[in-house]
Write a protein that binds this DNA or RNA. Structure first.
Lengths: 159, 159
DNA sequence: ATGAGTGCAAAGTGTTTGCAACTAT
DNA sequence: ATAGTTGCAAACACTTTGCACTCAT
């Protein structure tokens, strides 16, 4: 195998690294690390896509058949609560999940296209001013990476 | 009837006025004005609360019994598409709807408390900078009043 | 050992659909 | 006249639940 410390820049996150980080977060919070949770995290770490709970279930069917659908839902819920995964809330449709710290190793925001359903990623700090303002005005502690902005993506807007 | 042009300031929106405005928007867009749509708009105009589709269905059961559940869903969908109503997307739960221009006659944003589910209203312009930035960075046309911010409200944060 | 986590299957929500009849334009 | 809307009822998609059992700690 090639050396593990060859590059400092990781444009494409190593699934392995993201996975380990997530596990560490779990332990740090005093949460138990079970096979089901490992499996869910592995599935999320393996892609940069935003997956529905049901897609995670499907993914695990081949690799980790003992993990029940209910466990996937419960696990995603816990992970979202802890901020280890962030989720995109879509009108009517299923929530989409992925590791908060992936794919490029840092947090980010989500925007959802009402027309084609695409998820557009925005810089994590785009909401910083809003976070502060919401807190001053309403005492609201806004979690930027759990919020889903809605609109029309560039592709759909151009027609 | 009293004069219709007596006051220019309408701090508390007249349900009637909000209703008429919404109807006018519908017509302006070339949409048909049916009894079902009127009923849904009346229900929304009658409250400053954020209602689920099912709550609208219930409200209409007494006042407008011929209006079917499916019509309510379809109508809310159309109205949201047109921007006449804005909706709050809640993780897992049902979407909440209300007139975009109510209750104080102007647009505004929504924040949803993950802990207690409360909907907090923020000034319409809070996302202005983000709208511009999203457009510059990603060509994304962000619809602020259709976006739901997520976090913890003041009450829940204080414990 | 012990309580958090899990599998299971069923029920719960929330929403959409195909189609014939209706109606606003 | 006619294309958009509706009612209907069933299907659909998504998520949660209670409980007995298991396993990570």
């Amino acid at each position: 195998m090639s050396s593990l410390h060859s590059h400092e820049r990781l444009h494409e996150a190593l699934p392995q690294a993201a996975f380990e980080t997530a596990l560490a977060s779990l332990r740090a919070r005093g949460e138990r690390v079970t096979e089901g949770r490992r499996a869910v995290l592995r599935a999320l770490a393996a892609t940069s896509e935003h997956l529905t709970a049901e897609q995670v279930v499907s993914a695990l069917e081949s690799t980790d058949p003992g993990v029940h659908r209910a466990t996937v839902y419960r696990t995603l819920d816990v992970l979202a609560e802890l901020g280890i995964v962030s989720s995109v809330h879509v009108s009517g449709g299923a929530n989409l999940y992925h590791l908060a710290a992936s794919p490029a190793g840092h947090e980010h925001l989500h925007a959802h296209c009402r027309s084609c359903g695409a998820v557009v990623v925005l810089p994590a700090d785009a909401l910083d001013a809003v976070v502060e303002r919401a807190h001053r005005l309403a005492g609201f502690r806004l979690e930027a990476s759990q919020s889903t902005l809605v609109g029309t993506c560039a592709r759909c807007d151009g027609r």
